[in-house]
């Protein structure tokens, strides 16, 4: 199986040949890969060099922590790739941005209102959790759509709070 893996913007074609071999951009490498105790912790030995990694799955990508550095990885297998190519390569980039609660907490303030224009980096909502106030910012320019929560509301993790269109 071939995977197109993008690490921080650079693409690597990784082919899984068998349990012990992969190729990266055509170069065959012997690997020894173990998942530790069913945890998102993995051990990889390549050429006698040992790497330990934490892998977190977020909504957009995989986050791979190796030797104190975090890499953002997007992985697509061949089938997904073909499908995307067939659909004209249109990546689902548009559509409204849904601001979801990154953690359970209490909404302190919503400094924007429905229909308001916002710029990338503008504060959309202030969420309090663990005694800290966190400013949640808009990832892009747009117009504020529906606002589902107000100051004083408690929210669960991943609860939709508002959208930017």
């Amino acid at each position: 199986m071939k995977y197109a893996t993008t690490i921080d913007g650079k693409e690597y074609i990784v082919e899984i040949i068998d349990e012990r071999h992969v190729s990266v951009d055509g170069k065959v490498i012997e690997v020894d890969f173990e998942s530790i105790e069913e945890q998102p912790v993995f051990s990889l030995i390549v050429d006698g060099k040992s790497y330990e990694s934490y892998v977190y799955r977020t909504e957009e990508d995989l986050e791979v922590l190796v030797k104190g550095r975090l890499y953002h990885a997007q992985v697509e297998d061949e089938r997904e790739r073909r499908l995307r190519a067939a659909s004209g390569g249109a990546v689902a980039q548009s559509g409204p941005f849904q601001l979801k609660a990154p953690m359970p907490g209490l909404v302190v303030a919503v400094p924007v209102s429905e229909g308001q224009e916002v710029k990338e980096g503008d504060v959309l909502l202030i969420l309090e959790s663990m005694k800290m106030q966190n400013e949640l910012k808009s990832p892009r320019d747009g117009v504020v759509g529906r606002i589902h929560v107000g100051a004083g509301d408690s929210v669960e993790q991943r609860q939709k709070m508002l959208s930017v269109e």
């Binding site: 690997v31 390549v46 990694s53």
Partner: peptide, 12 residues
Amino acid sequence: FPEVAAIIAALV
């Protein structure tokens, strides 16, 4: 170690 990260991401 972007290559290592790429291998790990693909294997996972």
